[in-house]
Amino acid sequence: MIEFEEMPMAAVRPDTADTLLRLDGLTTYYPIRKGLLGRVKGHVKAVDGVSLDIREGETLGLVGESGCGKSTIGRTILRLEESTGGQISYRGEDITRYSISKMRPLRTEMQMIFQDPFSSLNPWMRVRDILKEPMLAHGKATAATAEAEVDRLLDAVGIPRSYKDRYAHEFSGGQRQRIGIARALSLNPKFIVCDEPVSALDVSIQAQVLNLLKQLQKDLGLTYLFIAHGLGAVKYISTRIAVMYLGKVVEIGTKEDIFRNPKHPYTRVLLNAYPVPNPRLRGREKIVVQGDVPSPANPPSGCRFHTRCPFAQELCRQEEPPLAADASGHAAACHFAF
């Protein structure tokens, strides 16, 4: 059995005045339909009871394997997907069941940067029109002022103004992502979901885009939910990090907590896969997991990681561990974490 240092317990989610967005038991299920009549035979539990706080001005990194529900959380927050249960609160107001018309004013405050910068840009529109469209639709600019706003946005993301009459296919991947960032900024948002914004880019370009996001956050006071499956980008840009596995958050803490003192075995697995540029650490202890990720349509009982965890015991198979925190607020959903 793995042993952890015992620490005093504390509330996982203390009330703070700077909380911008709060998720309480958020669930997003997708029906599985079979037969000619399309009857529902089960559900894919993409997000299953997630509770998170995102504080104003911070970057919360959300990391985990593909298919764990990271992107679904981001899309559900912005109401691009409808939640099955739970609550989404923005600035203390429950927006979970807002109508389309009631959500419209919030669209200017909550935006998204998509993973694929090519498919998220209209191939039939020039850059100037891509950036003008949201401003004109939401009344953030007029036909007379929109051109100056386009120039301002291009300057902010490092695209020459002379390129605004080009189409998306005329740009490189990094330039297209900069245009996607400019489009997200066009409505002067306060909160942006960054859905794996650098995963499709070369490593050198990734660094440029991450530096751009950090500078924009500093200049504009933005709050990010930064979704990724690689720990390198998350470590660089995040204030706090939440680790997801099979639809649930299994650990959350500051990036120092996660990288220096991981509590959940799954977090340690992710860290083992993270390359460390230090030859002295090549022989560090590694956790080896076996088997595939279980189906989100039929997750295991108890702790969902127990089927792959080398430290699993009978309690792990029978009882689901709560997400509990120590006195510093570092939380983990493991029976033997604290």
Rank of each mutant, 00 (worst) to 15 (best):
M7D: 12
P8W: 14
R13E: 12
R13L: 15
D18T: 15
T27G: 03
Y30L: 01
I32V: 14
K34G: 01
L36W: 03
L37D: 09
R39W: 05
V40K: 05
V44W: 06
E56Q: 15
E58R: 15
V63T: 02
R75F: 10
R79F: 02
L80Q: 13
R97L: 15
S99D: 12
R104E: 08
F114H: 02
L131R: 01
E133D: 13
L136N: 02
A144D: 14
E149S: 05
A156K: 01
G158Q: 08
I159Y: 06
Y163V: 03
K164R: 04
R166S: 05
A168H: 03
I179R: 07
I181P: 04
P189Q: 10
D195S: 01
A200R: 11
L201G: 06
Q206K: 06
Q215V: 12
I237Q: 06
R240T: 14
A242H: 04
A242Y: 05
V243S: 08
E251I: 14
I252G: 09
E256P: 12
D257C: 13
Y274V: 14
Y274S: 10
P275T: 06
P275V: 09
R280T: 11
R282T: 13
E285D: 15
I287A: 11
V288S: 09
V293F: 00
V293M: 02
P296T: 02
G302W: 01
T307G: 10
C309G: 09
C309K: 10
F311A: 03
L315D: 13
C316E: 09
C316V: 10
R317F: 11
E320I: 05
P321R: 09
A325Q: 14
A333N: 11
C334F: 13
